[in-house]
Design a protein around this nucleic acid. Structure first.
Lengths: 225, 225
DNA sequence: CTTGATAAGTGTAAAAAATACACCTTCATG
DNA sequence: CATGAAGGTGTATTTTTTACACTTATCAAG
């Protein structure tokens, strides 16, 4: 069945940049393209938006279909619309930034795993379309928002230690932080809740476990995107 | 001539929130809709993206066609894609934030002026579609970016006095600022260039005129969108 | 069960940044 | 040439950020 319009229309897709921390590295989930264009190259998960779904639901659906992931934090990143970005024709892509702890990402195995892999943000393979640009923007955005949002927490499981949280800030922010000052900074956000539990982690004092307070807002200080 | 595709495609439009300062108020340019849906309501300028133009060029073209404006600062704001946002069918809109000094906006008179008007951001008329939401987001974004960007300068003509710049920050930020501290803050950005000129403005000391240094970056401190 | 190794957890002093605040300058007008 | 009005300037105080070192709880090995 054909769908006809009086004027030409672009195709609209979503592309999702899924970041997680693996082996203390910021990593992104990519799919190896089986067919042309860019056969053999790696691409962001994503696909066409369907008529009755919101952009965000479309992104979540594509992510589920292509990677099996369902439990991720998602926010809109930017819309890419260069006329020549896809050689097959005009394709406008609404890019999303997704974050999740590695634990939430095991469903990846559920799908066609051969074509799926994690890459360190520092060591990307040859990428299809303008996906390298999209990824670069996602990374810059994530890094910028670290300091005035609670995005970092989205890379951790529900409960976590102070040190784990600090590592997120250090890895994403690409700089080492002072332990005492970091704790002071986080406490000043007033978003931490003690769980009462501890985690024994080796031959030393066990660490207290925290969770993000349910009432925690995403933005603090200077609000913005 | 019909354009046919194997799958349904949404229409893609741009909508542009043009802010300026008028009578010491943050104001936005709206167009009165002549026909249904939302006949008689006010809407943001914008329209369909053409096959061979970038999203940004499309936004600039629509702005020119509908309002006569050509000299504005433009940045992408957000993409709105709720399936029901337009009763005529699926329309995805890439919203842009535009800023310009009132002086650059006289071309407004060039177009069908009867249907065009400025509204104070605080006193908006009944608006079509989800344009009120778009406007609210644009306003929040502008305000948030004041403190870590040079967006405020985009609301001023090429040369301006310190006091005029302060008024921009006060009006957009919705709070009064201390004169001496403000000057210290701006100087610390290192983006001001003295023109050597002054402006006589009444029975008092004339004000020095400045311009934004050509090398000035948009972002300072914490970079981000 | 004592000892040593390891990461967790804590406070204070110094430096930097942000804030509060008042008077002199320059010009136009009468 | 006196007056009124906005332009322009510096310093002291408070707040925030940074730098920095020792004690605590646990495990493993002797």
């Amino acid at each position: 069945m054909q769908h006809c319009y009086d004027y030409p229309r672009p195709a609209v897709t979503t592309d999702i940049v899924v970041f997680t921390l693996r082996n203390e590295r910021l990593s992104v989930l990519l799919i190896r393209r089986a067919r042309d264009p860019y056969a053999g190259y790696w691409a962001l998960p994503g696909g066409f938006v369907e008529p009755d779904e919101t952009l965000e639901r479309g992104a979540l659906r594509e992510l589920q279909e292509e990677t099996g992931l369902t439990q991720v934090y998602l926010e809109q990143l930017y819309t890419f619309g260069e006329p020549q970005r896809d050689p097959r024709g005009r394709v406008i892509s609404v890019a999303y930034l997704a974050l999740a702890p590695l634990e939430a990402l095991q469903p990846v195995a559920a799908s066609d795993a051969a074509a799926l892999d994690w890459f360190e943000a520092e060591h990307l393979p040859e990428m299809a379309f303008d996906h390298r640009d999209i990824l670069a923007l996602a990374r810059a955005r994530l890094r910028a928002k670290l300091n005035y949002s609670t995005l970092a927490f989205k890379l951790l499981p529900e409960t976590f230690t102070f040190h784990e949280l600090q590592r997120v800030y250090e890895i994403v922010g690409e700089q080492e932080l002072d332990k005492r000052n970091f704790r002071k900074f986080i406490r000043s956000l007033n978003v931490l809740q003690e769980t009462g539990e501890t985690r024994r982690n080796g031959a030393h004092k066990p660490a207290l476990l925290y969770r993000l307070a349910g009432s925690a807002v995403i933005y603090h200080d200077r609000q913005g995107t």
